[in-house]
Design a protein around this nucleic acid. Structure first.
Lengths: 226, 226
DNA sequence: GTAAATTAATTCATCATTTAATTATATGCA
DNA sequence: TGCATATAATTAAATGATGAATTAATTTAC
């Protein structure tokens, strides 16, 4: 009776008692499972019960490792979200000052981060950008590595130096940029169903976004794009 | 006099008993209240309790008028969402065949709809596009007035006739367009807080989006834009 | 034998839903 | 016109489900 294996769940059928040294880290597994569920149906809609069941353990384990739901999401932020964003920001630091390169770097860099953390777009768009719940507050309080502010500052500098169309509000350019990169990925299932197409993958989306942005903001095929 | 209409507690203090003919329609008030709450914190996160309290009545009234929560959201779709979308589609029918005019018509038309239904972007983005819950299924099943498909078809036609850059996937262009128009509005509170600015209003967002799209997709200031 | 990890069972809160009672309006009838 | 009664709208209270959080036991590695 190792727990019936429906859905995607591993169901490790964890043996009770103190684990051996070679046992996989349950805490990390719980975080992964929680993130997957959160990304799929949202934080509010996933019960600790469901997370525990998907991980093949008892809900009490979540309390054992994290305390309560609030501290679980806090751990999610501290141990997963912030590192991912910090990595993205580090990538952007290298992107240089040219707005075209900056935009291309942001779109491609975010693409790479998302490839490694597929849960990020839906969770981010729903819970942080559109929800107004605890996760947003936690993120904004966190003095997170604010990529938007950094981008807006660089865009403003580029405008001051005449390297970017001064008619564009730098902040709104950032908003559009974030929307163009996160929104299509986060909403991909809808479009696939609506258009009956499975080929609206991440790569196609990213290249399309870049194609759309070229010709604007001084972006004119900055070299490596064919 | 009738209802001190601020945020959480209008408290109409509705008199018990059969109402007179001049009494306002409670059913509509409940729909409005539900929509406001849904847009603010999401469908899953709002309790019928909260809706009833905000409307100044007992939760039992929701059962009286709608039956249960599922039929409440169904009524929301039937009586609010679909009419709003039908109106938008009707506007688009008039926008003509030129892709530039079509895009401008879409962005401006959606802007007008949103101005009259401010609850639409957050609810739409969160529940339909990013959630995967009942509302999405209901919408897609509904054979809703599918604006995305209509736009994609017209874009494809324009490409066939050489009036639109053939390098753009029409479907992805639609996705980007929807994202560019809905996402910034739906996520406005975050940006206002992040940038410490209150001036990121709907008008500025719309004009910025159009400015961003011009120069692309053959959109070159199609006449009335200054 | 001891401490860490885990489960099973329990408690408490919240929420959706239902039922029974209550209030006031409208309507029929004299 | 005045009164009685049916009926629509509403409340208050009860029910049942679900989920978060807790506690006490149980298992196993060291």
């Amino acid at each position: 009776m190792t727990a019936p294996n429906h859905r995607g769940a591993p169901r490790r059928s964890r043996r009770a008692g103190r684990p051996g040294a070679d046992e996989p880290d349950l805490r990390q597994l719980l975080l992964d499972t929680a993130i997957a569920q959160f990304a799929r149906v949202g934080i509010g809609a996933t019960s600790l019960r469901a997370i525990a069941a998907a991980a093949g353990v008892t809900p009490a384990m979540l309390h054992y490792y994290f305390g309560d739901k609030a501290r679980l999401t806090q751990a999610l932020i501290d141990e997963r979200l912030l590192p991912a964003l910090t990595a993205l920001r580090a990538q952007l630091e290298l992107a240089g000052d040219d707005p075209a390169a900056l935009i291309e770097g942001f779109v491609r860099g975010l693409g790479e981060v998302v490839a490694r953390h597929p849960w990020l777009p839906p969770l981010w768009v729903r819970e942080v950008l559109c929800e107004g719940g605890a996760l947003r507050d936690a993120m904004l309080r966190q003095r997170a590595p604010s990529i938007p502010q950094m981008l807006a500052q660089r865009f403003a500098k580029a405008q001051a130096e005449g390297r970017l169309d001064a008619a564009l509000d730098p902040r709104l350019l950032v908003v559009s940029l974030v929307g163009l990169t996160l929104f299509p990925v986060a909403s991909a299932p809808v479009w696939q169903q609506l258009f009956g197409a499975q080929d609206l993958g991440a790569d196609a989306l990213r290249e399309h976004t870049l194609a759309l942005l070229r010709g604007r903001a001084g972006i004119t095929t900055p070299g490596e794009s064919r």
